[in-house]
Design a protein around this nucleic acid. Structure first.
Lengths: 225, 225
DNA sequence: CGTCTAGTTGAGAACCGTCAAGCACCGTGG
DNA sequence: CCACGGTGCTTGACGGTTCTCAACTAGACG
């Protein structure tokens, strides 16, 4: 099994603030796991009792609404941590985590993380920073959900994925989402999302290669009203 | 000017985790202020450079959307802290804070708080907990905004205010919000909010005393679909 | 070759935003 | 004292957006 102190992934998250000794201690307690595309890592109400560090792959965080639809709240990618929020409040999970492709995860038990949170103030300040960043993003999403049309939200989602998760060599978005996933990010019916996407295509803003989406005119997308 | 170490307000927020010495130090640096109803405490883009402790009164945190409407993201009441998020990321304010009635605030400069965040791990863990709680609430709001109707959201908003901020002796909600505020919490047009409210009234779920709202049938409100 | 899932399109209904008009209340200035 | 204007509240009407139901297509996979 790999060693945390040598793992390059940690530079992308708060674990970078831990000392070598702390990383060695954590490394001896962690467990690695492989998750297959579509598998659920944890669901709403689960006691997680630890934190996952995403070594590879992508997953979605979603919550089931009373109308039966899954609302995607955040996309988590390689280098991110998963489950910090529940760990800190000591509550069960508020969201479900589902792998969007095959993933490699390291699980660090709760006690190890809490110990460092209470003893390494730089580490806890870093976790605080990440949480503050997530909160800002969540506030911005609330405003968008409340005030913008499906068309605007979908355009912004495509741009967000493009800017934050990058593209393949052929220019398509590297994160492959189903039409249903797009609908669940934007908070609309699958048919509505599909209709808007084909409208974007007709207007020359995007193109599709297979089921993948490629941005043709990013300025046009940004100007969508 | 009052002394932090004797102030009973702090028991409601993370400041309770500071030692007496730390509170004395902070108390000597803080400034008190009175804010009148309707006044803006800080707006989007401001450098706050500190944290406000709400000694009395209520304010709203909102963000201006590109369509010109203000989306209310959170209501902050007596005992809460204001501005922690921006302080931690070091960014300018993401939201605007506006007093909903006359307020009494204490302002604590950034350096004092950061010092304690880095030196008192119980304090920073408490701040972390509050932030984690805010993040959970924000995620839940996203789901509601995306998946529920204006009618459902308004019913839940009334219940939320009732449960979290209490009622006056006559049973009306103690937080007095304008119809526009309700619309801006729910994320809809003022006329739409008004229409739903009068529908609730017609159905006997709520009553109005002056401009104040009183819940008549809370179970009915919870069952609104 | 059937079956399953994801994607797609159409049509009608429900929901919501906008414009417009009118009402109630309040403070100001004549 | 009253007329006046301002602001917030309320209701109606209409049009655009979005949801839902239904039918159909394309591809995957045994």
């Amino acid at each position: 099994m790999g060693k945390c102190e040598q793992c390059i992934i940690k530079q992308f998250n708060a674990l970078k603030s831990l000392s070598k000794d702390e990383l060695v201690r954590i490394s001896s307690c962690k467990t690695s796991m492989i998750i297959k595309k579509g598998d659920v890592i944890f669901e709403e109400g689960d006691s997680i009792n630890g934190v996952y560090c995403v070594k590879d792959g992508i997953c979605k965080l979603s919550k089931l609404s009373s109308n039966g639809k899954d609302q995607i709240v955040k996309i988590v990618v390689k280098g991110d941590l998963l489950g910090q929020r529940s760990l800190i409040t000591g509550e069960t999970a508020n969201l479900q985590a589902t792998a969007l492709n095959d993933m490699e995860l390291c699980f660090i038990p709760k006690n190890e993380i809490v110990y460092d949170l209470l003893n390494n103030s730089k580490f806890s300040f870093d976790v605080l920073k990440e949480m503050a960043h997530d909160l800002k993003e969540a506030d911005d999403i609330i405003v968008n959900m409340a005030q913008k049309t499906v068309r605007q939200r979908l355009a912004e989602t495509i741009i967000y994925i493009h800017d934050n998760f990058g593209t393949n060599p052929d220019g398509t978005l590297s994160v492959l989402l189903s039409r249903e996933d797009f609908a669940n990010i934007v908070g609309t019916a699958v048919e509505s999302a599909i209709r808007v996407l084909s409208q974007f295509k007709k207007e020359g803003l995007i193109a599709t290669i297979g089921k993948r989406i490629k941005i043709n005119n990013i300025d046009g997308l940004k100007r969508v009203e």
